[in-house]
């Protein structure tokens, strides 16, 4: 529980962060809210030699709604999402999911960008952005690119982010159609054993902790698009998943939960 020695660099803007990442290469790690990285460092499971702290990069904070797009700065905290009236009106699903992350202390430090960049399949927000069909804005030394959420996650705790890139913004469509998040866990503060997100009347359905990345429940989406009932669609919730086994659940139990929770989520979303 005692981290290894690490150098600390403060970057007060995305530009400064990119410059620091270019300078230190893959020895560096971005520090945002630190709610995932710092525990890993304390257990010495992560041992970056340089921390680039973007905690004061105010250009990466904020929520704005223009037309049919909600743009959220990567450093916006879960707590801000949870309590934003603007977000509650434009994309209530995302505000609700943010309210279920960890505990209040985690939500006051943790950031949307940090959660997505950490790419934990057990996290709530990556699956929500996935179900919403979000877009991630990534800045690097060569400029800015946009990545669809469906293309962002590449493996367990892995994404398309290069070592010198910074996730700067998350865009999701304005979405007020039927939605639900069914988070199944044993304590309020825990990661989901399994979670199911339904967005925009079933146009997007995603699963938490059912594979090495957050995944879309494509079989459910297809069944719904084909006119299947909620019950019938939910029966295919575990199709194509590769759920992990841990203290809380093995694969077959997770598959069972995925089906049960998908049925509940679809019902709650009015489908």
């Amino acid at each position: 529980m005692i981290p290894a020695a690490v150098d600390y660099v403060r970057a007060d803007s995305a530009e400064a962060a990119i410059a620091a990442l270019v300078e230190h290469g893959d020895e560096a790690k971005l520090l945002a809210g630190g709610q995932s990285l710092v525990p890993l460092m304390r257990l010495r499971l992560a041992t970056p030699t340089v921390l680039v702290d973007v905690g004061r990069a105010t250009d990466l904070v904020g929520i704005s709604v223009e037309g049919d797009t909600v743009s959220i700065g990567a450093l916006t905290t879960h707590s801000t999402l949870e309590h934003s009236a603007e977000l509650a009106a434009a994309c209530p699903l995302l505000a609700h999911v943010a309210s279920l992350v960890g505990d209040p202390a985690v939500r006051h430090r943790g950031t949307l960008g940090g959660s997505l960049a950490h790419a934990d399949p057990a996290s709530d927000l990556p699956a929500a952005v996935l179900a919403l069909g979000g877009t991630l804005v990534v800045a690097g030394p060569g400029g800015t690119r946009e990545v669809a959420a469906t293309d962002f996650f590449t493996g367990f705790l892995e994404s398309v982010l290069a070592v010198d890139e910074v996730l700067t913004e998350v865009r999701v469509p304005v979405s007020t159609g039927g939605w639900s998040y069914q988070k199944f866990n044993r304590r309020a503060q825990d990661w989901a054993i399994v979670g199911v997100v339904v967005a925009e009347g079933g146009a997007g359905v995603s699963l938490v902790n059912m594979a090495s990345t957050p995944i879309r429940a494509t079989a459910v989406e297809a069944a719904l698009a084909g006119g299947a009932s909620a019950t019938d669609a939910a029966a295919s919730a575990a199709d194509g998943t590769e759920p992990p086994t841990d203290n809380q659940a093995d694969g077959p139990y997770r598959e069972h939960l995925a089906r049960v929770l998908t049925a509940r989520a679809l019902t709650a979303a009015g489908i």
């Binding site: 505990d103 044993r186 304590r187 309020a188 503060q189 825990d190 990661w191 203290n247």
Partner: peptide, 9 residues
């Protein structure tokens, strides 16, 4: 995280 001491919640 793995040893589930209950919280106030």
């Amino acid at each position: 995280a793995d040893y589930l001491v209950p919280s106030a919640a």
